[in-house]
Amino acid sequence: MGQLIQQLINGLTLGAVYGLIALGYTMVYGIIGMINFAHGDIYMVAAIMAVTVLTLLGAAGITAVPLALLITLVVVILFTAIYGWSVERVAYRPLRNAPRLAPLISAIGMSIFLQNMVQLTQGARVKPIHALLPGGFELGTIDGFTVHLAYTQIMIIVVTVALLVLFTWLITRTSFGRQQRACEQDRTMTALLGINVDRTISYTFMLGAGLAAVAGVMVTVYYGVVDFSIGFVAGIKAFTAAVLGGIGSLPGAMLGGLIIGMIESFWSAYLSPEYKDVATFVLLILVLMFRPSGLLGRPEVEKV
């Protein structure tokens, strides 16, 4: 029982991180209808930047945890958003009206480029940082198993919930959200109504990158180690989460992330850690077979 609750907490934390990355996928997919293959690597770039900023802050003597975290978040989100904008500008915008597979290939190219760029400029070694926020609560001992709830886990869950609320508000209530949803439905008509489609898409990429940046900072603080290759697996998992929840749906992305986080932590604890990814992918195949539009997605009507 104790272990069950512990795995629940761990799964929730992991799921929140996947959910954050999946939000970026689902927004970009919604607006341009394409898998942004470089998204996982944007997350990795953010995590590496978080290490740099935290080290800088440490050297500058800013060690107050809330302040250091806040500065790191702001700086990393800013720079990652610039990366997101550049990725869109270089690899997607020139291919807006190209055959469907062309942007996918350029995105895979971008993913390879980013990964190797970071490996070259920042080194291939694993980067460890000091625990910024050590410790946590002991929730009590059940059946001889002490359940821990780390401060970092609380932080991740709170930040994720806050961002989900913020983005739901942004998409459903603001003028930008309306423009964004309009672009999703009909780009030509939206342009005719005087909305700058290119700019809306750029902003969507920047917002997606910003979410990935938050996930990157959280993971850096939570695990304390980061390297240049973390982007690929996280990206795949997060995309799976987005599809699982129903692509284009924000709560769906979060739900998908949570389910995958839970499966991963329970499967590792009770069955075999080697096959946790297999479990994730098999679940994805099953969901797509029986509910192709995902758990919370709207079924798509095919028009001639």
Binding site: P94, A102, I105, G109, S111, F113, N116
Partner: peptide, 21 residues
């Protein structure tokens, strides 16, 4: 050799932008 995968990725992007078909 350090740069080859970097160039490989860049080449993929450039060729696609230049000739999307």
């Amino acid at each position: 050799s350090e740069y080859r995968m970097l160039l490989f990725g860049a080449a993929m992007i450039l060729i696609m932008v230049w000739r999307p078909g």
